[in-house]
């Protein structure tokens, strides 16, 4: 499996926002986003990126340290060491202190007409 050089993540918050920091986990290790911008209050959009330069087995957004966080949409663009960048979009999900949401999507299988 090729390494993930970088990924950018956009999170649109729904009705219930959070004032906790956005923490993601790469292969189970909690890490901050590089150069985060925007916000996670209700209706706001958060943008962050990270350059793991490692093989991804799992990438997730950790639920808030307190309270609930309702997310309307997560969009992620992955840059792998080989192949073109690709994106994945995920729909609504509610996070809390007990869970985390997967944001890792494997690259699309190469398909072509022959």
């Amino acid at each position: 499996m090729p390494k993930v050089q970088q990924f950018e993540c956009t999170i649109k918050t729904g009705n219930i926002g959070t004032d906790c920091d956005v923490v993601m986990a790469f292969n189970g290790h909690p890490l901050p986003f590089d150069a985060p911008s925007g916000g996670t209050a209700s209706g706001e959009t958060f943008i962050g990126s990270f350059a793991p330069m490692s093989v991804a087995h799992s990438i997730s957004i950790i639920g808030p340290m307190s309270g609930e966080w309702q997310i309307d949409e997560i969009a992620v663009t992955y840059h792998l060491e080989i192949g073109e960048p690709y994106s994945a979009r995920f729909g609504p999900i509610a996070l809390d202190t007990t869970n985390q949401v997967n944001i890792w999507a494997e690259p699309p299988r190469p398909a072509f007409d022959v």
């Binding site: 890490l31 609504p92 949401v101």
Partner: peptide, 27 residues
């Protein structure tokens, strides 16, 4: 002072959390 960043949670605690899957949206 809202220490809710990565230092507030360990890798062990991350693994104990349930992994949920949001619906995948068509591109």
């Amino acid at each position: 002072s809202k220490s809710t960043g990565p230092s507030a949670i360990s890798a062990e605690a991350v693994r104990e959390r349930e992994m949920v899957q949001a619906p995948r949206l068509a591109d």
